[in-house]
């Protein structure tokens, strides 16, 4: 709730979105002079909004497990020489998680070959229920494919991870839409608050991680 104001700092136009590398994500919604059948549709599409900030985090040094049951050192994974996109989800979430997961898929499609190096990481914030088998089924449901790890672990460790990313909301029911990006060349993270579209995320990744 405290982050509410910060969330709407950025206001991004999907179509009029020109400078992906700009730190100032501000713009106006294009007015449609003549109302037409799809005005509402377009307006809805233009309404995705998010803010991007640069943050320094000390990633919790914990062992998690992936959807295949393999043990993973989170720090090692995130300090690899690949660009990283990370989010927090849980498989029985009823609002933003399925959308965020589908958005990650779409971001990959948007990036195409250029994004083949990008490593996607989705960490469950409901580790008691989301065991590897559940995450594997979820990954298949969203056709996640290779290069996308779904992680779970001990609930205390997951809380530590959330806290280290300043993303702990107390209960899974207060879950916020957050995407974290990291370039292998930099120690800092780009934090995206809000539900960005697949293209927004792809643009951010291209501008900040792949160039």
């Amino acid at each position: 709730m405290m982050k509410f104001e910060r969330l709407f700092v950025g206001f991004v136009l999907l179509f009029a979105y020109a400078s992906a590398s700009s730190n100032e994500h501000a713009g106006h919604q294009q007015e449609q002079a003549v109302p037409d059948k799809h005005a509402a549709h377009r307006a809805a599409m233009q309404k995705t909004r998010y803010s991007a900030t640069i943050e320094n985090y000390s990633v919790a040094d914990v062992e998690l497990i992936d959807q295949l049951g393999t043990s993973v050192s989170l720090r090692t994974l995130l300090e690899s020489d690949q660009p990283i996109a990370l989010n927090f989800i849980f498989t029985t979430c009823t609002t933003i998680c399925p959308v965020m997961t589908a958005t990650f898929s779409q971001m990959r499609r948007e990036l195409g070959d250029a994004g083949s190096e990008l490593r996607l990481v989705s960490i469950s914030i409901d580790p008691e229920y989301d065991r590897p088998d559940k995450l594997k089924a979820y990954a298949e449901q969203f056709q996640a494919g290779a290069g996308w790890d779904f992680l779970t672990g001990d609930s205390a460790d997951v809380v530590q991870v959330l806290k280290s990313f300043d993303s702990y909301a107390g209960s899974k029911m207060n879950h916020q839409p957050i995407t974290l990006l990291k370039s292998p060349d930099s120690a800092s993270w780009i934090r995206i608050d809000g539900l960005a579209s697949g293209k927004d995320l792809a643009n951010e990744v291209t501008a900040r991680l792949l160039d």
Partner: peptide
């Protein structure tokens, strides 16, 4: 979310609106 294609098998009306259709709240 603007441009993200999804299929009903990934999530359905019930996933968010509930079995009862009475809605819910999660976070904001």
């Amino acid at each position: 979310a603007g441009d993200v294609p999804i299929m009903g098998t990934q999530f359905s009306c019930e996933s968010c609106h509930g079995r009862s259709g009475m809605g819910a709240a999660e976070g904001q």
